[in-house]
Design a protein around this nucleic acid. Structure first.
Length: 451
RNA sequence: GGCCCUAUCGUCUAACGGUUAGGACGCCAGGUUCUCAUCCUGGAAAUCCGGGUUCGAUUCCCGGUAGGGUCACCA
């Protein structure tokens, strides 16, 4: 049983707009979102921009955009830079009660002469973490830490506590790196007379070398993954499985299923490596579930214009190629790259090649190969356009291929149609390009072999 | 270095103190129509080390080791 205050859950995702939305942050947002949804609670998005030097609206936009793309809609929005009055009031209250004081500093370059420090009671703070259990820290060593530069300039640890209390946040679900801040925040919360939230610190997402995932390891920004052609649902699925799992052996989950299954108690304690190969696999599961209509629109939008200018280009042909494409790609981006590289050109134009390539393995006899192709052509000639499907074509020539040797017949045929060492099988290709084009390419190959 | 946290196949992970330590990704082999891809079947692959507690530890305790986080008038 999770809790008995189901209706009162309030979670928040509180990024600082000092960088783009990182995949690790995206997972933190996901878990907050899932937990609030699961308990019918509220999910708050709070932009922590108290550092005016480093915060930018561009980064804020990037974060908002990423969250929208993933579908994590928030129920409430706040920006710390707009809540100065609230912090000031609490700061004054703390100073009045003696829990904080204005401290004269020694000065020095770049530093002001006065700051507001928290009067540290210097005690042992123990807080419960839903992921790790009880954590105890002697706060004496923290000293009288600074909570604001002045009444109008609160610092992170102070603003967070004031906001969480003010917004009624019940569950603070954040990254592992927040553990070290928690004792300070607990102390401030007690001085403020605020109820203590339930904490859950998520393990970090690591790079393959187990260090903190950063730009030098490749893509870390959520928008990069979007631009690489990954689906938001696949990213969510993958992120959910990093550091959490439902306890059974399923791998593919919709956001609704995740909401249903999500549970803080099943979160992993150790850091998890961001494994792109698994992401690719998951993304393909989603790619293959796409409806043909949606897939067509997506592919149509990313293929190079060059393709649409080729002799035999037409949309229906592209439509019939989709199953071939998704079988060979993990992402839409891979489909785009394949098209850019000319991987599928032969579907829209007679491929060029040298005659020798049409010969199967140790076969040296051009005439024999040409004869086999002609036999195939004769058989295909008898098919009506309606019968000219992949299974139909196969049925028409399979017997001959068995008799003659499969490779001896199928290799030259496939090569004649594709001009490639590697491609889908000849039946599939023939089905896509149709009867007249198939016969034409075979005739072309026969000419190449016999002249 | 101080403080805090973590430790099951290469990776993500499952396993009321009793299992041939399970699954998935990846990898390897075989098969499914010639090649490629998909798909199917099979395979290799793990409890960090040392002590305890216990009839019995992956599981509980202690120590070690390794890794990570954090030590701002950043968040």
């Amino acid at each position: 049983m999770e809790s008995n205050h189901t209706s009162s859950v309030v979670t928040r995702f509180a990024p600082s707009p000092t960088g783009v939305l990182h995949v690790g942050s995206a997972r933190t947002a996901l878990f907050n979102f899932l937990y609030a949804r699961k308990h019918g609670g509220k999910f708050i998005l709070r932009i922590e921009d108290t550092d005016k030097e480093r915060s930018t609206t561009e980064y804020e936009s990037n974060i908002l955009e990423g969250l929208r793309w993933l579908g994590f809609t928030h129920d409430e929005f706040a920006r710390q830079s707009e809540r100065g009055a609230i912090y000031k009031k609490q700061l004054e209250a703390l100073i009045a009660s003696g829990a904080a004081y204005v401290s004269a500093e020694e000065g020095g370059e770049g530093k002001r002469t006065e700051v507001i420090r928290f009067k540290n009671p210097g005690k042992l703070v123990t807080f419960r973490d839903e992921v790790r259990g009880d954590i105890s820290v002697d706060t004496t060593e923290l000293g009288d830490f600074v909570i604001a530069k002045d009444l109008d300039t609160p610092l992170y640890n102070f603003a967070v506590v004031v906001d969480d209390a003010d917004m009624g946040v019940t569950h603070v679900i954040r990254g592992d790196d927040g553990i070290a801040n928690t004792p300070r925040q607990v102390l401030i919360g007690e001085a403020l007379g605020a109820p203590r939230p339930i904490y859950a610190h998520l393990p970090l997402i690591l790079a393959p070398d187990r260090s903190k995932l950063s730009k030098r390891h490749g893509a870390v920004a959520l928008t990069e993954y979007r631009d690489l052609g990954y689906f938001p649902d696949a990213i969510v699925n993958f992120l959910a499985l990093l550091g959490w799992n439902p306890g059974d052996e399923r791998e593919i989950f919709s956001i609704d299923e995740l909401t249903e299954l999500f549970d803080l108690s099943k979160i992993q304690k150790g850091g998890a490596i961001f494994n792109t190969e698994k992401l690719n696999w998951i993304n393909r599961q989603y790619l293959q579930k796409l409806s043909p209509g949606v897939l067509f629109e997506d592919v149509f939008a990313i293929i190079p214009p060059r393709l649409k200018l080729m002799p035999q280009w037409n949309e229906e042909r592209l439509r019939s190629m989709l199953p071939i494409m998704i079988e060979r790609a993990h992402t839409l981006h891979e489909i785009k790259v394949a098209c850019d590289n000319g991987e599928y050109d032969y579907f829209f134009a007679l491929p060029g090649y040298v005659a020798e390539s049409l010969l199967w393995k140790d076969e040296r006899d051009h005439a024999k190969t040409a004869m086999r192709l002609e036999t195939v052509a004769d058989a295909l000639e008898r098919l009506t356009p309606n019968e000219f499907t992949a299974p139909g074509v196969k049925g028409a020539i399979w017997g001959f291929a068995e008799k003659e040797g499969r490779g001896a017949v199928l290799w030259p045929l496939r090569y004649a149609l594709s001009g490639k060492e590697r491609s889908p099988d000849p039946f599939i290709i023939a089905g896509v390009i149709g009867k007249s084009e198939t016969l034409e390419r075979i005739a072309h190959a026969v000419r190449a072999l016999t002249t």
